[in-house]
């Protein structure tokens, strides 16, 4: 019996190692060839940092990176604010039916395929007379980030004990004070999680942006797509290495934030 168990656990180990290899090989492969002086992803000629030098000299790309971050930060900020309002509104409805209807409407953009969101927003902006470019991309990113913020803030509101608000009111707090001194501090972990998810949604998005971006404006994803369609250029590899490091940094920040928020809510529960 013991032996059988042992065998299956070593099988599990091998299986997991294979999965990790599968998941990480392509990424490491990209980064490895970013140091190739040969210019292809086929044969490694020699070590070079030229592609990184090219990358950091490329002013156009630098502007695109700036655009991408401007869109991500602005859209996440606005989406977080509207999302908090949305969560508060949904939470204030006591009837189950109204709540569920609002939640279903909220989730439409979460489950819709990107192409449909992109195509329908393209129609919307064209009819609304909004020029395709920075504004249309920003509005789209705000729109598709709102539902995730709502979904991450709402559980914090439901988990909050309503007697906290009654107590505040009995002690003479007005509505504004209840909101800023009681509710908002309590749901802060949810707000951070929502903002962070909105940020990653925006940075990662390709399909929706591709539809509504027009000619003059580009984000990183759209730029990578058009570069990749032209074929292999090791600039993209260097870019992917930089982005991968950035992603790892984000993951670490997210992980730490989550640890902290777990500690915090545990503190409140006590």
């Amino acid at each position: 019996m013991y032996k059988v168990h042992n065998k299956s656990s070593s099988f599990a180990k091998i299986y997991l190692i294979l999965i990790f290899l599968l998941l990480y090989t392509p990424i490491l492969f990209l980064i490895f060839y970013s140091f190739n002086s040969g210019g292809t992803m086929g044969s490694f000629k020699g070590f070079t940092l030229d592609w990184y030098r090219d990358l950091f000299k490329d002013m156009r790309l630098f502007l695109i990176v700036l655009n991408t971050f401007a869109i991500a930060i602005l859209s996440s900020l606005v989406a977080t604010i509207v999302g908090i309002f949305g969560a508060l509104a949904i939470h204030s409805y006591k009837q189950r039916k109204t709540r569920n209807t609002l939640l279903s409407l909220n989730n439409v953009l979460m489950v819709s395929p990107d192409v449909i969101i992109g195509a329908s927003f393209l129609i919307l902006f064209t009819i609304g007379g909004i020029k395709l470019g920075f504004i249309s991309v920003l509005l789209s990113h705000i729109a598709f980030s709102i539902p995730i913020v709502v979904l991450l803030v709402l559980p914090k509101l439901t988990e909050m004990n309503p007697t906290l608000m009654d107590a505040a009111r009995d002690l003479g707090a007005n509505n504004w004070q209840i909101l800023t001194k009681v509710i908002l501090p309590y749901i802060t972990p949810g707000i951070f999680a929502g903002f962070f998810m909105a940020l990653t949604y925006s940075l990662d998005d390709f399909a929706v942006t591709f539809f509504v971006t027009g000619n003059g404006f580009s984000t990183l994803s759209v730029e990578i797509y058009s570069l990749a369609r032209r074929g292999i250029s090791l600039n993209i590899n260097a870019l992917s290495a930089v982005l991968f490091l950035f992603t790892i940094a984000l993951v670490i920040v997210y992980f730490l934030l989550q640890q902290r928020s777990n500690l915090k809510t545990m503190g409140v529960r006590k």
């Binding site: 998941l23 392509p26 990209l30 990662d204 994803s221 990578i224 292999i232 992917s240 982005l243 992603t247």
Partner: peptide
């Protein structure tokens, strides 16, 4: 973590 790497970069890796 790999799901946070831009989808297009992963697709590009497979072109190579």
């Amino acid at each position: 973590v790999p799901s946070w790497v831009n989808l297009l970069l992963k697709a590009y890796a497979f072109i190579g």
